[in-house]
Write a protein that binds this DNA or RNA. Structure first.
Lengths: 109, 109
DNA sequence: TCGATATTTCCAGAAATATGGAATCAAAGA
DNA sequence: TCTTTGATTCCATATTTCTGGAAATATCGA
């Protein structure tokens, strides 16, 4: 991941409403959630949320597909994984001090 | 790490100049780099860089201490590690899809 | 085709962030 | 103490981002 893309992803997540939306999508699992449902859960106007989902989508952090009248969003783990790899490997040169805590998490699964 | 702090760290890194500064500090190792040297390397006005180092510092991503007339900055791996843990564990609930690529990096060291 | 529902796009004002010149502060040396 | 050097703070301007009303688009069912 080149740094331009990483910055886009970092900026996308550096926003309370967008971070909350992403976390809800993670909890929703593979079925995802339609935009309207997400707006209701977040108590956020539909158009504002739509803008924010667009930002997350362009950053590669969420996916979407139409289902009838709804557009269903889902967390894109691949995008998040690339960002985490960028931070640990490209950015911190893979130093154990940054990677170790992640190891513990990963091994405990 | 609570999300307020995570957002602060994400926003701090979501900036070309600040990300570049952080990476230089990683490469500089434990001795760190004085602000002026960093400004020279980044071809950035001293006051602009100072503002940005302040943002990184408040976000817990760099440390600093005075050495004579200079103020020496260093990467704070603990802060970065907390951010990475937030993204993988708190944010993605420790899903292997996000953690695995990091594992590979960590194990290859 | 019409109306209802779901979502996005357009747009403009408000708010936050970025930038760098000038002034200020801190340390060192003469 | 005065000057020089290194860095930060102050401040005004420029730019970007955020927000949500209104309008537009898409789909479905009658």
């Amino acid at each position: 991941m080149e740094s331009k893309k990483a910055i886009e992803a970092l900026a996308a997540l550096a926003h309370e409403g967008r971070l909350a939306a992403f976390r809800l999508l993670v909890r929703a699992g593979d079925e995802g959630l339609p935009a309207g449902e997400l707006a209701r859960l977040l108590a956020c106007p539909a158009n504002t949320l739509s803008t924010n989902l667009g930002i997350l989508s362009r950053a590669g952090l969420v996916t979407s597909h139409r289902e009838g009248r709804s557009i269903v969003y889902g967390a894109n783990y691949d995008g998040m994984s690339k960002l985490v790899t960028f931070l640990t490997k490209d950015c911190c040169e893979g130093r154990a001090r940054v990677c170790e805590p992640v190891d513990v998490v990963a091994l405990s699964l």
